[in-house]
Amino acid sequence: ENWTMTTTWPSSLELIEIDRHFVKLANDMIPDDQLTIEFFDGGELVPAGEVFGAVESGTIQAGGDWPGYWAGRDSAFSPLATTSSLFNAIDYVNWIKEWGGAELYNEVYGKFGMVYLPYGVTNNESGFRTVDKPIRTTEDLQGLQLRLSGYEQGKLLEKLGGSQVSMAGGEIYQALERGVIDGAEFSTPNVDYSGGFQQVTKYWSTPGWHQSASVFGVMIKQENWDALSPETQEMLKVAADANLLWSLSFTEKRATEAYQKFKDDGIEITRLDDATLQNIQEQANATIEEVACENPLAAKVYASMISYLQDYAQWRDASAPFNLGRTPAGPDLAAIEGCAG
């Protein structure tokens, strides 16, 4: 089999390394007479927003993505991509591999005739970068006009007193430079640094509560997946798992380096105080309950995620301080299960 694959990331964004690494692993591992993947950088074949459509219609066989881009087709894609103040990267890995997450990816993508292999995970996004004043408390957010992507994320920001401004990625830099907006979030520190945000903002407010961790992967047209031998399918899954692990340490290392570069450039890095984070958690839980209940499939995904958190919580707490991150007090599971399809 010969596959044509592309991704949502242009060669100028470092996120494309996750896709390239997967393709290399798969091509090296799988004999050429079984499967060869020809990979094109984002934009070479279709624009980012059209990768889904190109795979769905069978024009190309595979597409690397971040599931959140497709939330306009079904809002259940949103929790498959990221959460507001809920999962960290290891939570995603745990959930995907052992708590039923993988099946839910395939259920949601399956609605559109595709198979999905999650193969990338990054931990916390940077958070907001602001021009004039730091954000340390909920109070500081009042009245701020912030560039933020995502429907759920916008709702949450409004609950906290800020206003969401929608803006194309390429326009953020200039809008910050010109004071058109007060601040913006974009991506992880390394990606932000390559976008030049250190040149146009003075303050950086951590953590990235709007996007606590992110998942990336490849969507494959069902009939192309079915045409592979079971051995080849297995090798693709192994390549995806290997890539998942690699992507986490790769991006965390790059984020660490970029964090230092932001500091060296004199950016004032502040942390939200505990009371504010507590408030954000409560508002995030309320927002999740709202948006989950707008769509039974989204509710089903969220219910599975929150069940995982509750199921894992006791042992996770018992193993503190050696546990994998904090144990969030998430939204009301029973309420969301009530709306699940």
Partner: peptide, 13 residues
Amino acid sequence: TSWNQGEVTYGAV
């Protein structure tokens, strides 16, 4: 395809 999926934008609105 878009019509059958009831596709909407997924930004602020």
